[in-house]
Design a protein around this nucleic acid. Structure first.
Length: 431
RNA sequence: UCCAGGUUAGCUCAAUGGUAGAGCGCCCGGCUGUUAACCGGGUGGUUGCAGGUUCGAGUCCUGCACCUGGAGCCA
């Protein structure tokens, strides 16, 4: 009786007979010898069917099994340097559970639209498989870092009664007999949680109904958002650079084979260590003006501006103290220069741009009320939020890290649409 | 919403205004070590849609739809 095994572990089964339950990734045949590349979710492995070494029924099946047929393969694990991966399965039996000819994704090139229409099948391919494994590692690394650093996970709601920030376009939905909105950030709820637990984070999807059509925008994307009570901007930045460095190091350590499949130059990631360089918004504007960008003090950065700044550094770079007018209403003004806020964006290197936005929040009740009015927001919607400034308000800070943008940088992607299993884009909500 | 490029076989792409093709897929056959296997044969088209110019349009013109890239907006 053959033992069940995963392809990931076959090296430890050398010389033994195992059963692999998976799918046919590709097959070749020379008549009396068939080669099947099997995949089982943990890896890819060549299986060889030699006439006479397995029942005729199974040998025939090996010759006819179409691409992506579900198969249960039993055989002897052998080291063989002719096999991709170094080990192969010498088949003793093969059962085809189900399959159909004409699998849409051949091993040749396909266009973006065709691949996106078949995203449900595309995620089976080696590159997408490697990428989504890196994504899983990235998320686990973020959570493990925070969990072991004294943070408590306190999830924020996805259905919200009003705009969190008032700046971006929200998806409006029916909530029984009234309107509600899909969350654009868990931050406001995080602030409540921080006053209850000290150091908290939330992890979940966020939704922006903006008609952005670029390689760095998704309509639905995932953010991890830490928030800390008794924390100023400086302390917040320190957490950010420690977290990003730890996460990069862990992905490089544990997902090196996947990064190799993706063709990522890992040496660039191995340089990511704190401290990260810091420039002020003022300096960034000067830098851009020297490079010929048409930007003046007070403007927010456009995509080419952000990209240029990030290309000037080998490490992620903090841009600090933006004009208050560019940022959300809750950002704490710099006491020394009230026209700028104690906030910072973190721009990933190699032109990838913003992966984190964050900073210190307003903790003074009257100032916050004034800002809500200045931004044309309805104070009635923020009653609970203002309560946080009435009952034990303290300086606090936090940030949000965009998972897909961070993954796009770490994996060296051309477009963010590959960084999430089923992307929602301006003109795409299928599959 | 704006700008640019594109739309030809299931897929990826060719085709001076003059007979619509290739590779892959799929089907049939061959091959006992293949590496996106290979070899032979077969299958496959309202050239995005609607008009127009022309003896003749995949090719030129107009409109529309859709795709891709970028901008703006934003993380």
């Amino acid at each position: 009786m053959a033992e069940g095994a995963f392809i990931r572990d076959v090296a430890s089964f050398e010389g033994r007979e195992v059963e692999i339950r998976g799918w046919v990734y590709n097959s070749r045949s020379s008549g009396r010898i068939h080669f099947l590349i099997l995949r089982d979710g943990t890896g890819f492995m060549q299986a060889v069917a030699v006439q006479g070494q397995l029942p005729d029924r199974a040998f025939q099946a090996a010759g006819f099994a179409p691409q992506e047929a579900a198969v249960v393969a039993r055989g002897l694990v052998r080291a063989d340097r002719r096999a991709p991966g170094g080990y192969e399965l010498e088949l003793r039996d093969l059962e085809v559970l189900q399959g159909s000819p004409g699998y849409p994704l051949t091993l040749k090139e396909h266009g973006v639209e065709f691949l996106m229409d078949h995203r449900h099948l595309w995620i089976r391919s080696p590159r997408q498989h490697a990428l989504l494994r890196v994504r899983a590692e990235l998320i686990a690394a973020c959570r493990d870092f925070l969990d072991s650093d004294g943070f408590t996970l306190v999830d924020a709601p996805i259905l919200t009664p009003a705009a969190a920030e008032g700046t971006t376009t929200l998806f409006e939905i029916r909530y029984f007999d009234r309107s509600a909105y899909l969350t654009q950030s868990g931050q406001l709820y995080n602030e409540a949680a921080a006053m209850a637990f000290g150091k908290v984070y939330c992890y979940g999807p966020t939704f922006r109904a903006e008609k952005s059509k670029t390689r760095r925008h998704l309509i639905e994307f995932w953010m991890i958002e830490p928030e800390m009570a008794y924390c100023d901007l400086e302390q917040c930045l320190e957490v950010e650079e420690r977290m990003v460095s730890a996460v990069v190091a862990r992905v490089v350590e544990r997902r090196r084979p996947e990064l190799a499949v993706l063709g990522r130059d890992v040496s660039k990631l191995e340089k990511i260590r704190p401290p990260f360089p810091r420039i002020s918004y003022d300096e960034a504007v000067e830098m851009l003006q020297r490079a010929g960008h048409s930007i003046k003090w007070g403007d927010d950065f456009g995509a080419p501006d952000e990209s240029y700044i990030s290309q000037q550094f080998d490490l992620p770079v903090f841009v600090l103290r933006y004009p208050a007018a560019c940022k959300a209403f809750y950002m704490q003004p710099d006491p020394a220069r009230p026209e700028v806020v104690l906030g910072a964006d973190l721009l990933a290197p190699e032109g990838y741009g913003e992966i984190i936005g964050g900073g210190q929040r307003i903790h003074d009740l009257e100032l916050l009320q004034a800002r809500i009015r200045e931004h044309g927001l309805n104070e009635a919607n923020y009653g609970w939020y203002l309560d946080l400034r009435r009952y034990g308000s303290v300086p606090h800070s936090g940030f949000g890290l965009g998972i897909e943008r961070t993954l796009a940088w770490m994996a060296g992607l051309e477009h963010i649409r590959e960084a999430i299993p089923f992307p929602r884009l301006l003109h795409r909500i299928y599959p």
